[in-house]
Design a protein around this nucleic acid. Sequence first.
DNA 1: GATCCTTGCTGCGAAATCCGCAAGTTCCTG
DNA 2: CAGGAACTTGCGGATTTCGCAGCAAGGATC
Lengths: 171, 171
Amino acid sequence: MHSEGVASRSADPRDSRESRNGTPHLDAVSLAIIEQLQEDGRRPYAAIGKAVGLSEAAVRQRVQKLLDQGVMQIVAVTDPLTVGFRRQAMVGVNVEGSLDPVAEALTAMSEVEYVVMTAGSFDILAEVVCEDDDHLLDVINKRIRALPGVRSTESFVYLKLKKQTYMWGTR
Amino acid sequence: MHSEGVASRSADPRDSRESRNGTPHLDAVSLAIIEQLQEDGRRPYAAIGKAVGLSEAAVRQRVQKLLDQGVMQIVAVTDPLTVGFRRQAMVGVNVEGSLDPVAEALTAMSEVEYVVMTAGSFDILAEVVCEDDDHLLDVINKRIRALPGVRSTESFVYLKLKKQTYMWGTR
DNA sequence: GATCCTTGCTGCGAAATCCGCAAGTTCCTG
DNA sequence: CAGGAACTTGCGGATTTCGCAGCAAGGATC
């Protein structure tokens, strides 16, 4: 009952509650704004406002807030291959002891694009982006396996990237 | 000798050659433009031009071409959790027969964000983004495992996303 | 080597957008 | 009821975007 439509005047951008990790919930209007910017990160505020039923100024304020809160970022994304990174791999890591130090160390590596803790036969999955085979080998064998707490790793070298989307909420 | 500096007038944006898959190579200036837009996808062309040593119009043309060619896209990216997708998983898939049909089928699913063919103990890795446990269960057990050619799957449910970057080339 | 053609860059107005601000309204909360 | 938050409308001025004409460099052709 707190939002009878996308253009409802009483919609609260933060939707009162907060989720467990402290990140704010988003109402339908902010979702719609994000979807607009997922289609085109440079779309003008007025056009977004027309699409979601808000004034240009309001959209501007919302976008700024979403960016400040870190809920969303507007960036250029590329196919790594095109930009000169020819070897990528997903690395499954098994850890003994606490996961956090290992995850932190992985996060600190510039070659590591993606770090996620998982349930399953790996404790951590990390995506590595490298310039060539030597570089990849170096990162996996010399740096990741050398981290204290790392019991074992398994690598999945990328052969072909088939899909890469950034369209959460746009379906 | 075809590029003695970032601001060189004779730098060829396509760098003459093409890579094996037909995607054009990028010269240093285009790389620099991409880096600027990776920091802020809405940065004005004039500011980028100042940073990379090009006129505003030239930057505009280059960016447009990069977008048209599909080398880069400017989009809003979010943490899926914040946008209401509470369950994510990486799914390793083993296939009997040819990989392509399976990869295509995965690519066609809206819940699948990421599909990559790999070397290693999985043939394909797919990242799945779902709203809740039921949704995730449905996608993995009913839809992915049901695909013809899928021999087995193994799931890694995400517990915590530690890092997510889009900064290829920005190091 | 002269010519043609393509590509990329510059420079420049005109149009559109962004940005900050102020006043007024509505709704919710303490 | 007072206070706060969010939105709207309206407004200029600064900035940015956009389209176009002109020019220079490089390659291809004859």
